[in-house]
């Protein structure tokens, strides 16, 4: 029981990393980005290739995964997304859906369609034996601590730095922020890149837990959307809490009622969207 809770928190932590960036594009920029999983998947595969084929140490693959996803994010945002900000939601849906399809086929072509397996370094493998019936996987503990630190860092950046205050202003009211001389476009671009990087980091850390394979972008689309829908926009704590609840529900669902597993998740999503279309904790997007 405690183990399930623990595993759920670890999964939730990964979901948080992967989806927190989406709450900005979807919730704040009002851009229907269904391709967020593509950026995450990229980071995951970069980590796998570096680790398994080139023998780069695990911890060193993480920054690389971040950089690769963030880089891809910048390129795609500058080249394509920017042109679609003013287009209708329909064009955005079509474009990002196409990106998902193309990326899935490309991933299958380059990496094969099997689940990826990685060899964790010795110090992250194994288990802590805390007391009878309660074993903590070292890696999962590492994940929780790591994601906790990232969440804390994001919170600090958002609340203490100039960048953070500008972003909050832009989230509150993009028009006014623009009028105040804040370059909202660039601000969002940077945030978008960081969000993609975090997603890549999340997938790199979750190669085995989240089962990285070419269908990743589609499979986790719903999870990401749930986190955004439930967590709302403009805060760190909203998506964090939503991710943790989702992670625990997911693990517990698969563990206790494997027969209806995914059913619960989709049901929760629909219920949540109907109950609070604008997020559980978040404010309504202003634009």
């Amino acid at each position: 029981m405690l183990t399930v809770l623990f595993d759920g928190i670890a999964t939730g932590a990964l979901l948080f990393l992967s989806s927190v960036g989406l709450s900005v594009t979807l919730g704040v920029m009002n851009f229907v980005n269904l391709a967020h999983g593509v950026f995450a998947m990229t980071g995951g595969y970069v980590a796998v290739v570096l680790l398994n084929r080139w023998g780069v140490p695990f911890l060193a693959t993480l920054p690389a995964a971040f950089a690769a996803s963030a880089g891809l994010g910048v390129v795609v945002e500058r080249l394509f997304y920017r042109k679609l900000y003013d287009a209708g939601a329909l064009e955005q849906v079509l474009f990002t859906t196409g990106l998902v399809f193309a990326a899935m086929a490309a991933a299958a072509f380059l990496m094969g369609s099997q689940h990826q397996i990685i060899q964790l370094p010795a110090f992250l493998a194994g288990q802590f034996h805390l007391f009878k019936g309660f074993d903590l996987g070292v890696y999962r503990l590492f994940l929780i601590v790591f994601c906790g630190c990232v969440a804390l860092a994001l919170q600090l950046v958002l609340s203490r730095t100039r960048f953070g205050s500008r972003l909050r202003a832009a989230v509150d009211n993009a028009t006014v922020a623009n009028a105040l001389g804040i370059n909202v476009g660039r601000l969002f671009a940077v945030t978008f890149a960081v969000g993609c990087g975090l997603a890549g980091l999340g997938a790199a850390l979750g190669v085995e837990i989240l089962n990285l394979d070419p269908s990743f972008p589609l499979k986790f689309l719903v999870y990401f959307l749930i986190v955004v829908a439930a967590g709302g926009t403009g805060t760190i704590s909203g998506p964090l809490l939503a991710s943790l609840v989702l992670g625990i529900c997911d693990v517990a669902g698969k563990y206790y009622v494997p027969d209806i597993g995914a059913f619960i998740i989709y049901g929760v999503m629909v219920a949540m969207l109907i109950w609070r279309p604008h997020g559980l904790f978040g404010r309504r997007a202003v634009r």
Binding site: L84, A87, E91, L94, G98, L99, A102, M104
Partner: peptide, 9 residues
């Protein structure tokens, strides 16, 4: 997928 994207753009 490419066709989707081209259409949208």
């Amino acid at each position: 997928g490419i066709a989707f994207m081209a259409q949208a753009l």
